[in-house]
């Protein structure tokens, strides 16, 4: 998926949706967030990330479920009494709800990531935050290189008789000492060279200009408008008190049927749709293609 959005749009999306998600426990808000994130991720065919998110959220959900079953007796709807301990529907529902909340938060991060174009981010930040940008650029450049060196050095030390497998933890860590020491030394040595390369090419010599300045387009307008609408409706619900929710006290239950929530969910879906439309590949490309 070629990313068409301006770099600040996903940042704004992430901030606003995290605000939504973390300001309440309301099931509709959580559902809306997950609807938004999953639609965008699925639209981008990010199946791997969808799966990965589940793996992150499951253990915590399991823990909360167990905890609520064993220790929490609050709630009205009693399901059973085991060894004199009440097991309530509310506590189980809450564990699930919070699990989904964690999942939604994870997915929202993934979504923002999938909408960020690294190149555009570099262009944008390069002029605003040159030092931080160079730091990250160098890190991204060096990681694959170091990783390769690491495995190469591991090979070399295996031929020098160092054993990495089937040894106790202490020995194992010890085995990596030589490998990591050499890698560190070589890395630091190369830090001078790469620093010199940046220096010779005039880094920090003056205010930077921007090579491919990305400008906001109708795509960003579309997404931001949908997002702003969603936010506005939500803030109204918040001020009106409809967004407060606590199952244990039965709080918010009577307003669950508030038709504004339907509007809210619709707006979530609309936002997801807008993002997908905005991010669709352009037919006539205005970008200059270098390929001949």
């Amino acid at each position: 998926m070629k990313i068409q959005l301006h770099i600040l749009t996903p940042v704004f999306l992430l901030v606003s949706s995290l605000f939504l998600l973390f300001s309440t426990d309301h099931p509709f808000v959580i559902c809306g967030s997950i609807l938004l994130a999953v639609t965008v991720l699925a639209g981008g065919k990010k199946w791997k990330q969808l799966k990965q998110g589940l793996w992150f959220a499951l253990p915590m959900t399991f823990f909360m479920l167990l905890f609520n079953l064993v220790f929490v007796s609050s709630g009205v709807t009693e399901l059973a009494v085991v060894f004199g301990k009440r097991i309530t529907l509310e506590s189980i529902l809450y564990a699930f709800l919070m699990g989904v909340k964690l999942l939604a938060a994870t997915y929202l991060f993934f979504m923002a990531g999938s909408l960020t174009n690294g190149d555009k981010a570099v262009s944008y930040c390069g002029s605003k935050l040159p030092k931080s940008t160079l730091t990250f650029l160098l890190i991204f450049r060096l990681i694959p290189h170091f990783r390769e060196s690491f495995f190469h050095l591991k090979d070399v030390y295996a031929t020098r008789g160092v054993e990495f497998e089937n040894v106790p933890l202490r020995e194992k860590i010890k085995s990596y000492r030589a490998v990591l020491a050499v890698l560190l030394e070589q890395s630091l040595e190369s830090s001078f060279e790469i620093g010199e390369a940046a220096y010779t090419r005039g880094f920090l010599s003056t205010k930077r200009s921007v090579y491919e300045r990305s400008r906001p387009t109708w795509r960003d307008g579309l997404v931001l408008t949908a997002d702003a609408l969603l936010l506005a409706v939500y803030i109204l619900l918040l001020v009106n008190g409809s967004a407060s929710f606590n199952l244990y006290f039965g709080e918010g239950l009577e307003r669950l049927s508030n038709p504004a929530w339907i509007l809210f969910l619709l707006l979530c879906a609309t936002l997801a749709g807008c993002i997908l439309i905005a991010n669709r590949k352009q037919r006539e490309t205005t970008e200059v293609t270098w390929d001949t």
């Binding site: 390069g126 991204f140 940046a198 090579y211 270098w290």
Partner: peptide
């Protein structure tokens, strides 16, 4: 330093 060829060529000019 950068990830794409044309951006790399532009890096010094931006600096």
């Amino acid at each position: 330093i950068l990830n794409k060829v044309h951006r790399e060529v532009a890096f010094g000019l931006e600096n």
